[in-house]
C-alpha cells in the first residue's frame, strides 16, 4: 500500500510528459492539438462501490497538418525519445497501430487508426497504485477538468 502522495506525483509527471509529447507531435506533423486532459481511473475493483487501486491517465488528440502523410507514427519515434521515452516499440491495436515507450514507471502510447481519420491519439499513464482505504472514495470522485496544455 502507498499513501496518496504517490498518485499525486504520478499525476504531475504524467501531465508534464503528455504536454511535452503533444507539443512534439504537433511540431513533427503540424496540425493542432485538442482534448488535452487527464483523469484518475480505477484499476482493480474492491467491491460493488469502490476500487482498490488507481492510476492517472493523460490523453490528447492531434489532428495532423495537411502536409503530413501516413503512417504518422513513423515520424514520431524521435518525439518519444526526445521526451525521455526510450526505445519505442511499434505495435498493433484493432483497426490501427501503436508506438509505445517507457520512462521509469510512466508508459506513453501513440496510436493512429487509418480508417478513422488523419489524427494521432496520445496517452501517458502510470502503474496502478493502491491508496489507503479511507481515501478511495475521494480518488473515485476526483475530477481534473483543466487541460494540461
Amino acid at each position: 500500500m502507498t499513501d496518496s502522495s504517490a498518485l499525486e506525483g504520478q499525476r504531475e509527471r504524467a501531465r508534464a510528459a503528455a504536454a511535452v509529447l503533444v507539443t512534439g507531435v504537433v511540431d513533427a506533423l503540424g496540425g493542432s492539438a485538442s482534448r488535452t486532459t487527464g483523469r484518475v481511473e480505477g484499476c482493480e475493483s474492491a467491491s460493488e462501490d469502490e476500487f482498490r487501486t488507481f492510476r492517472y491517465t493523460a490523453t490528447g488528440r492531434v489532428d495532423v497538418g495537411a502536409s503530413a502523410s501516413p503512417p504518422f507514427l513513423d515520424a514520431l519515434v524521435p518525439v518519444l525519445e526526445a521526451a525521455g521515452f526510450a526505445d519505442p516499440i511499434p505495435g498493433e491495436r484493432p483497426g490501427g497501430n501503436t508506438l509505445e515507450g517507457s520512462d521509469g514507471d510512466l508508459t506513453a502510447t501513440l496510436s493512429e487508426l487509418p480508417g478513422q481519420g488523419a489524427y494521432v491519439l496520445l496517452s501517458v499513464e502510470g502503474p496502478c497504485l493502491e491508496v489507503p482505504e479511507a481515501d478511495r472514495r475521494d480518488w473515485q470522485r476526483r475530477t481534473d477538468p483543466e487541460p494540461f496544455l
Partner: peptide, 8 residues
Amino acid sequence: DRVDPVTG
C-alpha cells in the same frame, strides 16, 4: 470525463 478510445 473519459474519452472515446477511437476518437479521443
